[in-house]
């Protein structure tokens, strides 16, 4: 497959200090063939990959929390239009902070065609925590094993084939800052989006029968109430954990709706005090 025709197209500008234009970045999936979400731990080079794919200049800072909301860009590949959504960097999808909620809601309810999970090759175990959580939600994923050059300098070798076998999704070794692996990542995105690659994602096993039964009961019930729910089992688990935001979403029947990029809870509630 040749990626020579990979054209780079500027969809929207996410750099600079002008926040007003964030409002324009709604989810207009109608104009796109595929939507790709970009997730990963903080400081894994997510923004570098975003820039490499879209040609945008989102500023890359070496600290956690640089991307607070979703940034969106676009590229075309093999004649298809892809929208790329850069999610806030998070360690987990299970916690309660707002940036984690944004990332989680999009992977779960935004139904991206492909979710690229960026993992840091120098600290793989920690990064696999998020990768495995995302594989619980979706099987349309690609793992971008970034910072492979830094790992090499630290005498760390990662066997990408062993990893791909265990995870059941494509794994691409990258050094995004020098452009290494970008073509391979595009290839993997294309294969997963077109359905050419059939994933058999790793799933966490719960040996606990009581837990399995509880998940089944709730999942069935959830399906009855929210027809389009992509992953009722995952939602059921969160209810069993007592996840406040999911409980709230069920209560208000807003489960499954993705909030727009710029909608952030305003601070008026403080007024009431």
């Amino acid at each position: 497959m040749s990626h020579a025709e990979t054209a780079i197209q500027c969809g929207s500008c996410a750099s600079g200090c002008n926040t007003a234009h964030l409002a324009k970045l709604g989810i207009k999936t109608g104009n796109w063939d595929y939507v790709v979400a970009l997730a990963g731990n903080p400081n894994t080079g997510k923004s570098t990959i975003f820039n490499a794919l879209t040609g945008l200049n989102q500023h890359v800072g070496n600290w956690a929390g640089k991307t607070v909301t979703r940034a969106e860009g676009a590229f075309t590949l093999g004649g298809k239009k892809f929208k790329l959504v850069d999610l806030p960097g998070t360690y987990s999808l299970l916690s309660t902070s707002v940036d984690e909620e944004i990332a989680r809601d999009f992977v779960l309810f935004g139904k991206p065609d492909v979710t690229v999970v960026v993992a840091d090759a120098t600290r793989l175990e920690r990064n696999l925590n998020l990768v495995l959580q995302i594989l619980e939600i979706t099987d349309r994923a690609v793992v971008a094993l970034n910072l492979i050059d830094e790992a090499g300098r630290n005498n760390i070798k990662v066997d990408e084939r062993s990893l791909a076998r265990d995870l059941g999704v494509p794994v691409v070794s990258m050094a995004a800052r020098s452009g290494k692996g970008v073509d391979e990542l595009l290839g993997a995105i294309e294969q997963v989006s077109s359905g050419e690659f059939q994933a058999r994602p790793h799933r966490i096993k719960y040996t606990d029968d009581i837990l399995e039964n509880a998940i089944d009961t709730l999942a069935t019930q959830l399906h009855g109430q929210f027809e389009d729910l992509p992953n009722a089992r995952w939602v059921a688990l969160r209810l069993l954990e007592g996840d406040e935001s999911i409980i709230n979403a069920v209560q208000t029947a807003t489960l499954g709706t993705v909030r727009a990029a710029n909608v952030f809870p305003p601070l008026v509630q403080l007024e009431a005090r």
Binding site: Y91, S92, L94, S95, T96, S97, R126, N129
Partner: peptide, 11 residues
Amino acid sequence: DTERRRMVDLG
């Protein structure tokens, strides 16, 4: 609660 989750999520 939340604090515990946060610690656990950090590994």
